[in-house]
Design a protein around this nucleic acid. Sequence first.
DNA 1: GACTATACTGACCGATCGTTCTAATAATGG
DNA 2: CCATTATTAGAACGATCGGTCAGTATAGTC
Lengths: 197, 197
Amino acid sequence: MARRTAEEAEQTRQAIAAAAKQLFIQQGYQATSMEQIRESSGMSKGSIYYHFKSKEQLFMYLLELNMVDWIYKCTERFKLASNATEKLYAIAHHFAHDFENPLMQASMEFSGTKGADPEVIEKIVEMSKFPLPLILDVIKEGIQQKEFAEDDPEGLALLLYSVLGGLGMIQFDNYSLEELEFIHRKAIDVFLNGIRA
Amino acid sequence: MARRTAEEAEQTRQAIAAAAKQLFIQQGYQATSMEQIRESSGMSKGSIYYHFKSKEQLFMYLLELNMVDWIYKCTERFKLASNATEKLYAIAHHFAHDFENPLMQASMEFSGTKGADPEVIEKIVEMSKFPLPLILDVIKEGIQQKEFAEDDPEGLALLLYSVLGGLGMIQFDNYSLEELEFIHRKAIDVFLNGIRA
DNA sequence: GACTATACTGACCGATCGTTCTAATAATGG
DNA sequence: CCATTATTAGAACGATCGGTCAGTATAGTC
């Protein structure tokens, strides 16, 4: 079998991407082999390299997709929030539910890969910070609206990002989604309490 | 050259451990090869495997050493603190200065390794949470002494651990030690403000 | 229906992985 | 001083890595 229609080809591409994404999340970048991706996707080695020119590029593709999706969903949630405080809760909620974002873990691990293209590494490090500007904007808004006390917005943003990022990185295998959500909400509670005007 | 005195052998062992530690911190577990450790330590493959029976065991050895050292230093700092609040600052200070603790990153990455002994994985996951009990104790103390508001200590401990852990995991390549310390101090400021009695 | 570009296969590549093995040497115990 | 054993070196192992390539089959084009 060979030469599918363009539509079928796109399905193949997505099947590979989906399998790769799951494996990268479960095992990290280095621990996932192209052979595993081949097996899991049901496609052939050649097909994978037809659609993606390297493991690095495949990973990058997934990261970009994930980032766009993350930002989109987050701004969607923002529409329902009437002030900065609610937006912070929205972000926390988003982090808690973000079973896709574990790609962040993989992307941090990626940086250490030997022989990796330095350009790609820098790009990925850069990309891994994508939620920061969003958080920063909300905090600036909160300060401007007198919801939060006057303070260094950049520092606070970095702080909140670390909290949520840190929460996401800890091994929560034995926590339910409800518990996860609770912890993230509590994080915002304490944080808000700490910066309240 | 061969057969050194027991003392020299111990030096060899430590040289290997030191080289490995640095590499694991810089590159992570999987990205660090035994060949690199050999090159960096200046010893031979055979010597490495004479002292450590596998890469896994070498890593475990470093983790345990690191954990013991961490806890010791931390309890030392606690002696200078007169209340729970100061102890929290001490912990933050310790996290900020902890250029050794990045092993935590490597240990989280390790979990994903294929073919890794499940027993070892569980042991490492367990070990990676070692600062939690310490933090928990301090928070309990703070609540009991009415420094902090009545609240769920476990939740707060997990939260603070995530903050500090998260701060440690973010790529801070372009931050100075002063800035690092400042950020960690700020984290405690906000946290304390958020839980103050 | 001939031709071409596209989509895919699977065998194969050299490099590198963690690990093992043998041999050589020197400190140690008798 | 001899036998033993602890400690090192470094060649070699099989497995697996990411990646390539020649070949094949079909959808689209004329």
